[in-house]
Simulated scan of single mutants.
Amino acid sequence: MIEQELFSVLGLARRAGLLIIGVDEINKKLKKNKEGLLVLLASDASSSVKRSVTAKMAEGQSILINIPLTCGEVSRAIGTTSTQIVALSRRSGLGEKIQALLAEGGNMLE
Rank of each mutant, 00 (worst) to 15 (best):
C71T: 15
P68S: 01
G22R: 09
L18N: 08
V86C: 02
I98A: 02
A100D: 15
R14Y: 14
K29F: 10
I63V: 14
I85K: 08
S47T: 13
M57P: 05
L41E: 01
E59L: 08
N33D: 15
V9F: 01
R91D: 12
K31D: 14
A100L: 15
V49K: 00
L10C: 07
S46Q: 12
L38I: 10
R91L: 13
E59K: 04
V9P: 07
A100W: 11
R51G: 00
L6A: 08
G95R: 02
K34M: 10
T81L: 04
S43A: 10
R91M: 10
I67L: 04
L10N: 01
A87K: 04
E59D: 12
L30G: 01
L38A: 11
V74N: 03
M1K: 06
V39A: 03
F7V: 15
L38E: 04
S48L: 11
G11A: 07
I21K: 12
A100M: 12
L18I: 06
E35A: 12
K31N: 12
I78S: 04
G36W: 07
I85P: 12
E25I: 00
N107Q: 12
G60W: 00
M1W: 11
R15T: 14
K50H: 10
L69I: 05
G93V: 11
Q4S: 15
L10T: 11
I2D: 03
G36N: 04
K28I: 12
E104V: 12
S47N: 11
G79D: 06
A58N: 10
T81N: 09
L30C: 04
L101C: 04
T83V: 12
G105F: 04
G106D: 08
I2P: 05
G79N: 04
A77H: 07
E5M: 14
Q99C: 11
L40F: 05
V53P: 03
A16P: 06
S62G: 05
Q4K: 15
A55D: 09
I2N: 09
S46R: 14
L37K: 03
G95T: 06
V53F: 01
V86M: 00
S48V: 11
S8I: 13
L19D: 11
A58D: 01
L12V: 15
S92P: 03
F7W: 13
G95N: 02
L18F: 10
T80K: 14
